[in-house]
Design a binder for these strands. Structure first.
Length: 709
DNA sequence: GCGATCAGAT
DNA sequence: CACATCTGATCGC
């Protein structure tokens, strides 16, 4: 939840995402997206009065946000005071104090934030420097490098301050599977269930908020089943969304809500009241999108975890992961950074320890190598905490990093962050490089690391099983680099969108990797339950084994007891990665579904289906000019992913379940962690050693370092 | 009676 | 585990 006060140090005449208290006096208002925690004061009488007494004060937002806002009658009074700005279109705004006549000009640019429909970041450029307010965002690694307007020529702009979404700025969320991975997991689960019979329906237990639309769209496109929602008038001018949702309850996918929806579900009733179809009772499963829940697992999990007979958790995030945040910030390399959010249980200091090393103000201070002890100590701590940073090498701060040409967008991105930086000299962090290695290696590893957790969920009746809480580590590769998340639909390719109509783009494409099983309500046999779904995990299973370990060697596997049966009996959450699952499935003979899918994956059918446009092409949408951003990159990533799955299958096969394999996998996973491993857990890698040597040379305390993280 | 705020639930 | 929202209780105006 945002705790940003509404003003930036540099441009206090504007208020962003906060409209209460002193903010009502701002000369201009900005709304990054339509979530309530960013709309505080937006319908208060103080602000209404302010509007009444002014002809000039405006609220600036994206076209989609304007549309969503005005759909709510409570905000209708804004109608004549809202100015929708096209995304990626720098606009000069004159900030005038109506009483004194004092004026100040600022150029604002909206950049897609990938958080929810209409969400944007605001880039302000004016006399007081360039400032980026991110609002809430989820951008994959490398996205910043692909944003033209963050650059000036081939270089990143000189950004004074970034007001950053730090929701998941905690190593616990080091890696969160990409949108594609999460989407695919859900897709295959929904596909497997709904294909059993017309009476098999899925309830997507989504929170009442914008942000799940791309999920609905993709499920609908892929499966040809519209998603039931309580209401959809807010999308009346967004045909791309509208055609995938419905108020007709006779559909197999529901995202409807009811005040007592969990109870409804427990009573085998959908929130909309549906309980049977053609006289036959419905077979309902629930899928609850979650991020934090996965973040608490300590063992690897797949993006889907079965938490009960009829309940599943699906990994899903509206916010960037820890590593995505760091990638973003280190690329921007602002002078200052201010966290907009305090992660659960974190303190501002802690977050700053993570962020500062990625900022110039901090790097500069670090420059002198030989400093008084006090300073050195501080430096140490920061480093430790996170990432990286070989500050020692640092030289220039202003990033000379080249912007990634659009042409290259489809390429895998690892290099942009890791390599280019390294090449340059150093913005990179020692840790980064270390991390980078891991990441690349794990590029193909498509799983989520997780360890089990306690079962907390009381709500899902069935969650009983997970028992411990561990830290989660999500990892996997990052195919996302290939697509641009863009809820606004205005992309570089598509600048001419209609100014009057909001644009919406699906913002990503999913790649499918595997198929799921066909179990019925009952707990699947071991093979089925987890097995068939490469993307699934059961919450019960096994698990003890894992720990995060160090190197990533090959694929990891963590399959636990497949054979385990009821949810109730086991305490642990099973965590399996998609590949692992696939492997498992295959080894077991695989469910019928699995095999075919795997085979198809490489083909267009699966990869593109639905969204299916040829790579790189936009699908012009009637009024919006919105297009699906399915990029080639996605396709490639998908293929790579698929190929990988196959590899894994070959490689792992039956043995995947053996204990030692599990151990291996664990060890691998830990390498992605930023958290220092226990000394014996892993041998220092060359770059790490290098880093340590430098510290020693500078008289810094190495021991502290390790502790911090 | 409305709004702001907090606790609680989902 | 909780990403955001809504409800109800309380308090102040």
């Amino acid at each position: 939840m945002s705790r940003f006060g509404g003003r930036t140090r540099e441009y206090p005449a504007v208020s962003i995402d906060r409209f209460d208290h002193d903010n009502v006096r701002a000369r201009a208002f900005f709304l990054s997206h339509c979530h309530k925690d960013h709309m505080k004061g937006l319908r208060a009488t103080a602000l209404k009065r302010r509007l009444e007494g002014s002809l000039k004060v405006k609220l600036y937002c994206s076209p989609v946000t304007k549309e969503l806002l005005l759909t709510n009658w409570k905000y209708k009074f804004w109608e004549n005071h809202i100015v929708a700005l096209e995304v990626e279109t720098p606009t000069q705004i004159s900030l005038e104090d109506e009483t004194s006549g004092e004026k100040e000009d600022v150029v604002v640019t909206l950049l897609p934030a990938g958080h929810c429909p209409g969400s944007v970041m605001f880039l302000f450029e004016g006399e007081n420097g360039t400032v980026l307010y991110t609002g809430d965002f989820r951008l994959a690694k490398g996205e910043a490098a692909r944003m033209e307007l963050l650059h000036s020529g081939t270089r990143i702009k000189d950004i004074q301050s970034v007001y950053l979404d730090t929701t998941f700025c905690d190593p616990k969320f080091y890696h969160i599977p990409s949108r594609e991975e999460c989407l695919n997991g859900i897709l295959e689960l929904v596909r497997s269930w709904t294909s059993l019979s017309r009476n098999h329906v899925v309830w997507l237990n989504c929170k009442a908020a914008y942000g799940y639309e791309y999920l609905f769209i993709n499920l609908s496109e892929e499966l040809g089943i519209q998603v039931h929602m309580n209401k959809l008038d807010m999308f009346r001018n967004m045909p791309e969304i509208l055609c995938h949702v419905t108020t007709d309850r006779h559909t197999q996918i529901h995202a409807c809500r009811h005040p007592r929806d969990e109870d409804c579900f427990r009573g085998n009733r959908l929130p909309c009241g549906m309980t049977c179809h053609n006289g036959t009772p419905l077979h309902i499963i629930s899928i609850k999108p979650s991020t934090m829940w996965f973040g608490e697992r300590k063992k690897k999990t797949s993006v889907i975890v079965r938490t009960g007979e009829r309940t599943y958790r699906a990994c899903f995030s509206f916010h960037s992961s820890y590593s995505e945040i760091k990638d973003f910030l280190s690329y921007i390399s602002p002078v200052n950074v201010y966290p907009n959010v305090l992660p659960l249980g974190a303190t501002e200091d802690k977050v700053m320890e993570i962020l500062k090393p990625l900022c110039r103000s901090y790097r500069r201070n670090m420059e002198p190598r030989y400093k008084p002890l006090g300073t050195l100590k501080r430096a140490h701590k920061r480093e430790l905490s996170d990432t990286d940073e070989d500050d020692l090498f640092d030289s220039e701060l202003i990033s000379t990093r080249p912007k990634i040409p659009k042409q290259q967008r489809g390429e895998s991105r690892p290099s942009s962050t890791g390599q280019s930086e390294n090449a340059e000299g150093n913005i990179n962090e020692g840790t980064e490089s270390y991390k980078g290695t891991t990441a690349y290696t794990s590029l193909k590893v498509d799983f989520v690391d997780c360890e089990e957790s306690n079962d907390d969920d009381n709500d899902d009746e069935d969650d009983e099983e997970e028992s411990e809480k561990n830290t989660v580590q999500f990892h996997s590769h990052e195919p996302d680099a290939t697509y641009t998340a863009n809820f606004n639909g205005v992309t570089s390719d598509q600048q001419e969108s209609n100014a009057n109509v909001p644009c919406w783009d699906e913002f990503f494409t999913g790649n499918k990797l595997e198929e799921s099983s066909e179990n019925e309500d009952n707990v699947p046999s071991s093979a089925d339950a987890g097995g068939s779904q490469s993307l699934f995990s059961d919450s019960d299973g096994v698990s003890d084994s894992t720990h995060i370990s160090s190197q990533n060697s090959s694929q990891s596997t963590h399959i636990s007891e497949q054979g385990s049966q009821g949810w109730d009996s086991q305490m642990d959450t099973v965590l399996i990665t998609s590949q692992e699952r696939s492997a498992l499935d295959m080894s077991k003979g695989g469910s019928r579904a699995v095999v075919p899918v795997l085979q198809e994956t490489p083909t267009d059918t699966q990869l593109d289906s639905g969204r299916g446009k040829p790579p790189g092409q936009n699908r012009p949408c009637a009024h919006y000019g919105a297009c699906a951003l399915k990029s080639k990159g996605c396709e490639k990533a998908a293929e790579a992913g698929a190929a990988h799955v196959q590899d894994v299958l070959v490689e792992i096969s039956d043995s995947s379940r053996t204990p030692d394999l599990e151990l291996r996998r664990d060890s691998q996973s830990s390498s992605d962690f930023e958290i220092p491993l226990t000394p014996d857990a892993e041998a220092p890698q060359p770059d790490k050693l290098h880093h340590l040597y430098k510290k020693l040379a500078a008289g810094e305390n190495i021991i502290n370092e390790k502790k911090v993280s």
